[in-house]
Structures are given as structure tokens and as C-alpha cells.
Amino acid sequence: MATLEQVPDSTEALRRALTQVDPARKRKDVVMRVLVYLAFALAILPLVSLIWSVLVRGLGRFDGYFLLHSMRNVFGGMDAGGAYHAILGTVLITGWATLISVPIGLLVAIYLVEYGTGALARAVTFFVDVMTGIPSIVAGLFAFSLFYLLVGPDSRSGIVGAVALAVLMVPVVIRSSEEMLRLVPNELREASLALGVPKWLTIVRVVLRTAVAGLTTGVMIAIARVIGETAPLIITVGASNSINNNVFSGNMMTLPVFVYNQYGSGLVACTPGDASCIPTINYDRAWTAALTLILLVMLLNLVARGVSRLFSPKTRS
């Protein structure tokens, strides 16, 4: 009987040992937990506030009319005008920038991951890192000077802006693609090579195909990085109130420049009693254009997610 009573005793001792929490550790846990939550709140607060302000101030004018009309023949406090020309300009210029930067970026990344060894690869990596830090205004000046030398003083056009944005995109595309290509297991390359598939086909059909989801995300990040650029576009593309769908000639409007110009125009001095004149019209249009830009980026993100889901490797069906 004595032994039977001793068993619960040792069980109790074990239970105490297992349930007793070190008070210092518990304190540290609470402190760190609070810090982590605070940091999260601090990070999310500006974002929420930003989206809230843009929605509150921009939603009022956000309609089909705004999206489908330009600023041509719009003046003073007229209750009219939209950002169609700016949306078109942003889509075209960013599209051309993507068209220029993705092939370059992807090929450089393939070189670095699949071919590059030694000094040249290290040099490329170094200069890509340097390029990542180029201020956007410098990229704008570079593109402007380049076309000034090639075409002459009258070179302002969408394509110059696209080149400026491409200079900013290329290092981002290289970096993200490089990471993604390195994630492709070496076993897949070897499996393909061992089947008698040449190296270039292995890269195209196996490596790129396996990494395509990540590559899409990388390109999206690069687009998001440049779609809101203002300064280089003011230098290279200028501004316009009319629709211009030719990137090779003439000024173009883009959404960030539109926001900048509208906000800079300030309040309209309306004649008292003129009901059709809205004093804050320029501010309103700026906020709505900002909202449009945010929605555009979100839309592109959704498309990219769809693409990467479609192509990502599936384990179970």
C-alpha cells in the first residue's frame, strides 16, 4: 500500500515541474509579444490611413466619366475632365518599360544563375546592386540625355519615359528573377540533362517553366516599383491635357504627373454665384487619380496572382 501512495506523490512532483513556468521567461514573452504587435500596428497604420484618405477624397469623382474623358478643353472650375489620357499614358509607358526591361533582366538573371562564374558574374552582380540604388530622377536625366544625343532637343515622348523607367526596373527584375531561378532544384536540371536535353532547352523548358510563378511576381514587383514614378516622367515625357496614344512622339500624360499637376493647380477662384464652378475641382481630380493609380496596381497584382496560380507546380490535383 505504501508504494501505491508514493506513486501519486512522484506524479504530483512531475506535474509541478511541468506546469511551473519560469516567471522571467513569462515576462519576457509578454514584453516581446506586445512589442511585436505594436510594430505591426505601427507598420499597418500609415497604410490604412492612406487608403482611407484616398478613398474618402477620391471616391466622389470616381466614375465612368472620369475614367473615359481627358482634360482637353477643360478649364477653370468646370465640373468636367478626367484621367483617361493619364491612364492611357501610364499603361503605355509602363508597358513599354516592361517590354524593354523583362527580356534584359531575365537574360541577365539566366546568365548569372546558369552560366556566370568568376569575375564577370561578380562584376555584374555588383553593378546590379549599384543600379538598384539609382535615384529615379537620375534615371530620368539619363534617358533624357541619351535621347537628346540620339534624336536631338525635341525628343520628349513616351518611349523616353519608358527607357527611364526600364533603367529603374532592370535591377529589380534581375534580382528577383535570379532568386527565383536559384530556387529551382538542381535535380530538375540534372534530370533534364540526363535525358539528353540540351542545356538551352533545359533552361527554357524546365528551369523557366518551373520558376514562372515566381518570375511573374518579380516582374509585378518591378512594375509596382515604377508605376508611381513622377520625377523622371516630368523630365522625359512632360505633361499633356490631351489623349496621345503614340509613345514615339509628343508629350504624354501619366497618372502620377496628373496628380502632381492637378494638386499643384490649387483652388479655383470662382466668380461668386457661379453654381457650375467648383473651387476644389483640381484637388478632387488629384485624389481620384491617386485612387485610380492604386486600383490599377491592385488590378495588376490580381492578374499576376492568377497567372502564377495557373502556372505554379501542382502537387495534388
Binding site: 535535380e187 534530370a191 540526363a194
Partner: peptide, 20 residues
């Protein structure tokens, strides 16, 4: 070497089917 590998096949230590 590509032609050689078509004549001499290989199976690896870890199964490596193409995931895509």
C-alpha cells in the same frame, strides 16, 4: 555530350519528376 546522354540514361538518388 547531349547525344551521349540519350544513349546512357540515368536515375538519381532522390526521385525528381518534373513538378510542372
Amino acid at each position: 555530350p547531349v547525344a551521349v546522354r540519350r544513349q546512357v540514361g540515368m536515375v538519381f538518388q532522390r526521385p525528381n519528376p518534373f513538378p510542372t
